[in-house]
Write a protein that binds this DNA or RNA. Structure first.
Lengths: 212, 212
DNA sequence: GAAAACAAATGACATAACGTCACAAAATGT
DNA sequence: ACATTTTGTGACGTTATGTCATTTGTTTTC
């Protein structure tokens, strides 16, 4: 998290910094992004940057957090709207999300995010659902999912967490696959992304094995 | 790939370099590893390093390739041994692999590999199966899988590729989950890793949805 | 076996990024 | 008005990267 000093800054200056950072993280993946470029664009001295943020990662995840907050992706509401049908909720969530991520104004930022985020940092980019508390972020899910539709009992919260994690992985993977194809000149349409996601989600839902 | 010059080097010198690199990549994740440390340990001048390798990534993936070659993990043979039963093959593969990765001598290297490999570079760490050719790496799979056991027809090679990719993701994810737990002081046993993997694989095989 | 052609080795160099620190400036409190 | 705290600043030490001119070694050719 940014340091206290940052939040005491004039809003205009805060925005200038965040915009500069956002531009840099849209230009290149996190590892290639440089603090030097950010401060140059924001026109603030080097020392100030480190007065506001711990380091590059600090401002990156703060920026990412802002993006999430401003987006309409809210799995919680969706889950309630579909009476706790987890698969249905994830389907709907993906449809809304894919459109924004692929064609929205932050597409470049998301591209670098999805292609270069590793397992270790994956947790930090999960959707609103697990937003509030890190420790027990899936409490809402555990309480509001309809267990009748799953091979998971209400007494198996850990299994539910794992399933959710797997579903999110599938979401991320599908998006990443899109960007990968794009880079290798085999661009696919957003409909094909949807199809691919549907295919994998179908397997997770009903199995890929042929039980005759 | 290393440059031609590297392969003309005395074997002893090659090994010295690779060992130094391996130690460095075991010490810290790829992004934190430095060429400077590698050349210091290998006792070769800086200029030489760049005569042999393009950059850090070059020697990293070469090292990784050597590891794969020396390991017994061979999905192809396994697939034949189980008459093309893909799920059975992956199960067996995972059992063999998990043990080596978690308790083998290269555990530290693997830890950094699994926790920090992103979507973009994931492909480069796939098992022997897709070893030979990058372009059409899954040809063997397409030809030797028993389609009767899957909800995928022999006329849907693309779907099979996606399923395989998903299975490998599950493998990687399970390993990564182990290391993550370890870091957060909730260490789990290798048996629990197996259980977790079995759970997810079961979903992919038979679905997580309750079709009553 | 000398000369020419090619290959490999070397470390100084230019460049760029990082995070810190001592000091200056501004703001706030009393 | 002065003291105290907070913020601003950019030069600095450090560390890393990849290149290049030059030297050293090896092979080929006549």
């Amino acid at each position: 998290m940014p340091k206290k000093t940052f939040f005491r800054l004039p809003v205009e200056k805060q925005q200038r910094l965040i915009q500069a950072a956002h531009a840099e993280f849209s230009r290149v993946p996190f590892n290639e992004a440089s603090v030097s470029n950010i401060i140059k664009a924001a026109e603030i001295p080097r020392g100030s940057f480190y007065q506001y943020f711990e380091d590059k990662a600090d401002i990156f995840f703060y920026d990412l957090g802002l993006l999430r907050d401003s987006s309409k992706q809210d799995l919680e509401k969706t889950l309630l709207a579909v009476q706790g049908n987890l698969f249905k909720a994830v389907r709907q969530f993906f449809t809304e999300m894919a459109e924004e991520i692929i064609n929205g104004e932050n597409a470049q930022f998301y591209k670098h995010l999805f292609l270069h985020m590793d397992y270790k940092n994956r947790r930090k980019m999960s959707p609103e659902l697990m937003h509030a508390k890190q420790d027990d972020g899936l409490q809402f899910l555990v309480e509001n999912v309809n267990y009748d539709l799953l091979k998971i009992g209400a007494d198996q919260p850990e299994a539910l967490r794992i399933l959710f994690h797997e579903l999110m992985t599938t979401v991320f993977q599908s998006i990443a696959a899109y960007y990968l194809q794009q880079e290798s000149n085999h661009a696919i349409t957003i409909e094909q992304v949807q199809e691919r996601f549907e295919l994998v989600l179908g397997w997770l839902e009903h199995g890929a094995s042929n039980e005759v």
